[in-house]
Design a protein around this nucleic acid. Sequence first.
DNA 1: TTTTCTCATAATGTCGACAATATAGGCTTT
DNA 2: AAAGCCTATATTGTCGACATTATGAGAAAA
Lengths: 220, 220
Amino acid sequence: MTPNNEQAITSADKTFFQLRNDIVEGVIPSGCKLSETELSTKYEVSRAVVREAINRLATCHLVERKANVGARVVALSPEGLVQLYQVREALEGMAARLAARYMSDGEIAAMQGLLDSHFNKVKGGESYYQEAGDVDFHYRIVTGSKNSHLISVLIDGLYHLVRMYRVQLGMAGPRVTTAFDEHRHIVNAIANRDEELAEILMRRHILYSKNNIEKKLNHA
Amino acid sequence: MTPNNEQAITSADKTFFQLRNDIVEGVIPSGCKLSETELSTKYEVSRAVVREAINRLATCHLVERKANVGARVVALSPEGLVQLYQVREALEGMAARLAARYMSDGEIAAMQGLLDSHFNKVKGGESYYQEAGDVDFHYRIVTGSKNSHLISVLIDGLYHLVRMYRVQLGMAGPRVTTAFDEHRHIVNAIANRDEELAEILMRRHILYSKNNIEKKLNHA
DNA sequence: TTTTCTCATAATGTCGACAATATAGGCTTT
DNA sequence: AAAGCCTATATTGTCGACATTATGAGAAAA
């Protein structure tokens, strides 16, 4: 799953996390209307809490809100997926560039070690680690950029949408070993402090990933 | 001012716009604590609407919220400005690329006309049009990308922070004619449907702009 | 039968009150 | 006098009730 280092303080936090998970996992289906009263009875909290949770979901682009009408879970579409990956390409490309500039030698070494361990596990046939490893890799690059805007937009926002597409469109997909090679090349560029190359490789990595998903969509 | 095509439906909308403007313009100073009770009496609305407004400000990164403590207006810093422009470079670069791909011939022609009229007005000495023209130009590129994520992150989010830095650090600045040339080159690339060049030029344009601001900050 | 208007209903928006939490100031203790 | 604890107070978090708005069913008119 997603590494959950965010912890719920208030009741609204908890409700937000639960709702977000239910939406990403498809328990609450795409396009579904979110009734405040209904959810408040279901989750056993007041409407104010549900309202705040829904507002936060809206900032993640997981739901869309209309004044005096209500909120609906975002509709998944091929165009939406393309747009999502266009933004990922821009932001994560920059994140890789900044990671090459700002990550400490220790952080880079840790990331290299991570790749090794994931590679061994995947080689041993544990397909679970493919997804988890990919997620972990991208998280480290983004946080390595030390850019608070990049971190919040990607980790608090877009990544949940990415996961939603993956889960609901059944993206377990191959592309395992090739993706690993791409990860390895990116980390090498970062280790060499080659900002330009790191950005280019990350952008191509995401572009390939998008093409792969699009191909599946069209075949289905 | 900012072209305000967003209209307030609910009371929370109105309060949000007022608060946002007061923060950007510095009426509520950077770093200031936002008391819910205080603001609710000042703006003559209930605490619930102030709360919702503050939450929305938090999603714009104009205030920072801590559970059980409250919200403070974001602190402006040289590092924050650098990070802001790093993200702008990535996102607006991609926006220019997509604008070259998706903008209609009519939209491009309109943008060229806009540049002409702004050039004439600035040549006539109306310095107000420098800022307004720059804002308008960047808005058109972003909306021209037809990418809803780019549009919302930039226009609903980062641009208000950009304006806040401009206003409060006194960025009226020269760089008028050179910026105009850069705008012209970018539009030409878009008109030629040269995605690669449009992105590169936009990124350099924003990079120059950042360097210019940094220079001023260091001199002050 | 189709269209339009009206109204009932159910949802969202707003409000004031209460509960839970953080913080500052004073008090005790060493 | 300094440090730590504790209480008073003010702020945020949560709640249920009321106000306002959108929407669909049904009646009336063409």
